[in-house]
Design a protein around this nucleic acid. Structure first.
Lengths: 192, 192
DNA sequence: CTATTTTAGCTAATTATATTAACCATTATA
DNA sequence: TATAATGGTTAATATAATTAGCTAAAATAG
């Protein structure tokens, strides 16, 4: 009894490994070594083994992202708030490639929990959209659009999937402006 | 010498397994069993083992998607062509969940080949965009936007990540219309 | 048509990782 | 202070990938 581990420290180490060495190195072997412990010890904290650990890593990532997003949205409104949220999302993906990967990746098996995990982020979007003149349906469409775009764009960018040398910042900005334009069109088209 | 395998039949079987049983079952063990052969035999076709096979599966998927997209774009132009392409993309993802997963998933390691793999799809987009009054930069932004949105939306939808009961078709349609509006704004705003 | 080489499969052995079982020392608690 | 719970250990087991060495069928050279 030396290491003094707990679920949080283990998950944080897993996130670190994912970011620094790539998601393929998030194994019980590597993780245990980094934590100065033997692989079987990790079962004392994660009964379900690697599977459970990966699931928790996924949830941790979404909560982390939610906190970032919430933070930047404070004190901002409307387009300003949305832009801030979107940039925070993209920055998060860039700064935590491995973790972001894990968030995408491990959703497939646990769609129930994935739903809950992303609920926080969705709420922030809805809250900001409340100050626009939109009905509920429209808001749902818009949030889905942002989520789809942000996840896809960040994912492709993060893997170097956009070949053209043209600025990715510009493309991201262009896309956000386009979506925001779409939102304005749904209203009187005036207030921003 | 009985089975008469080759790289193509093996990849196609891998794609099948991914779609029918999930990407986690794309293993040499399962694959060999389905093909009526022993695992080591697969190395005669894929020197690089599972890694190479996964990479080829990814490339196969992108080529497959490209062919679908190309097909639906024939005989259409402008917004009509773009809508058709986008729906073809989304349908592909829905009909080939496992393969689509593999296409996303295995990009991380092979970004060079991933670039080439998606080049075909990108070309189709550019070709369609050629009939709009847009400069090169704008086209790049737009294609990136579509790619990001399509990948993210399809991926989230495919994993059941959109919780709200509201129609996903409507959301998809809404999003496409919004992006197309954005494109029209860049021009005179007239021709569609 | 036969001899030879290549090909595509096989079995057996090796390696790597996850997982389980059984055990033990320390910490916390009755 | 006795005892139970906790968080670690080592040893054993399971599964999948991979490698090595072998072999028969198929293709090809003569």
């Amino acid at each position: 009894m030396k290491a003094g581990l707990n679920r949080t420290t283990i998950i944080e180490m897993a996130a670190n490994i994912a970011d620094e060495r790539g998601i393929a190195d998030v194994t019980l072997k590597v993780l245990a070594a980094e934590l100065g412990v033997k692989p079987p010890s990790l079962y004392k904290h994660f009964n379900g083994g690697l599977d459970e650990l990966n699931k928790e890593l996924m949830l941790y990532g979404w909560r982390f992202l939610e906190s970032k997003i919430t933070k930047v949205a404070i004190g901002r409104a409307k387009d300003d708030a949305i832009m801030a949220i979107c940039y925070a999302y993209r920055n998060f993906a860039a700064e935590h490639k491995g973790l972001f990967e894990a968030m995408q990746w491990y959703n497939m098996y646990q769609s129930e929990e994935h739903l809950q995990a992303t609920q926080g982020m969705v709420s922030v979007f809805f809250q900001v959209l409340d100050s626009y003149e939109l009905n509920e349906e429209q808001k749902v469409h818009i949030v889905r659009m942002f989520r789809g775009f942000l996840q896809g764009f960040s994912s492709i960018e993060s893997h170097g999937g956009y070949g053209n040398p043209l600025s990715l910042n510009d493309s991201f900005d262009f896309a956000l402006k386009t979506i925001l334009n779409g939102i304005h069109d749904l209203q009187g088209g005036i207030e921003k």
